[in-house]
Computed example of a mutant assay.
Amino acid sequence: MALYMIGDVQGCDEPLGRLLDTIGFSPSRDTLFFLGDLVNRGPASLAVLERLMALGSSAQALLGNHDLHLLAVAQGVKRPHRNDTVDGILSSPRREALLDWIRQRPMALRAGGWLMVHAGVLPAWDVAQTLGLAGEVERALRGEHWQVFLQHLYGNRPDRWDDDLQGFDRLRVIVNALTRLRFCNADGVMEFDTKDSAAAAPPGFMPWFEVPGRRTAGTPVAFG
Score class of each variant (00 low, 15 high):
14 E>H: 11
88 G>R: 07
209 F>C: 09
65 N>A: 14
14 E>I: 12
70 L>D: 01
10 Q>E: 13
170 R>G: 10
14 E>V: 15
198 A>Q: 09
77 V>D: 05
169 D>T: 07
65 N>H: 12
160 R>V: 09
181 L>F: 11
218 G>N: 14
130 T>R: 06
90 L>S: 11
146 W>L: 10
9 V>S: 08
120 G>E: 01
127 V>C: 13
121 V>M: 07
177 A>F: 12
137 V>Q: 01
47 A>L: 12
120 G>I: 07
25 F>P: 00
12 C>M: 10
118 H>M: 10
133 L>E: 05
178 L>H: 06
172 R>L: 05
185 N>Q: 09
32 L>D: 00
124 A>Q: 15
181 L>C: 06
126 D>G: 13
42 G>M: 07
15 P>W: 00
97 A>M: 09
110 R>P: 02
28 S>W: 00
188 G>F: 05
29 R>V: 07
16 L>N: 05
51 R>T: 14
171 L>P: 00
91 S>E: 04
136 E>A: 13
23 I>S: 06
61 A>P: 06
175 V>C: 14
167 G>E: 07
191 E>R: 11
190 M>E: 00
67 D>I: 14
173 V>F: 09
39 V>T: 14
35 L>G: 03
159 D>C: 12
186 A>F: 01
43 P>H: 08
16 L>W: 02
121 V>Q: 04
211 V>C: 07
42 G>D: 01
12 C>W: 01
93 P>D: 04
70 L>F: 00
200 A>V: 08
82 R>P: 07
177 A>W: 03
221 V>Y: 00
51 R>P: 04
147 Q>F: 03
141 L>I: 08
189 V>S: 05
59 A>C: 12
222 A>G: 15
151 Q>M: 10
208 W>I: 08
4 Y>C: 07
107 M>Y: 03
113 G>I: 09
150 L>I: 06
61 A>I: 05
160 R>Y: 04
27 P>A: 11
217 A>E: 14
17 G>A: 13
10 Q>F: 02
209 F>I: 09
68 L>A: 04
15 P>K: 05
43 P>D: 13
131 L>S: 06
113 G>M: 13
122 L>W: 05
186 A>M: 08
146 W>V: 08
21 D>R: 14
157 R>H: 12
162 D>M: 10
55 L>K: 08
82 R>W: 06
188 G>V: 08
205 F>I: 09
47 A>T: 03
192 F>W: 13
65 N>D: 11
40 N>L: 10
42 G>Y: 02
7 G>E: 04
96 E>N: 14
153 L>S: 03
23 I>F: 14
122 L>Q: 02
33 F>M: 07
111 A>S: 07
89 I>C: 05
198 A>D: 15
142 R>G: 15
53 M>F: 04
186 A>C: 12
44 A>Y: 00
125 W>M: 06
219 T>I: 15
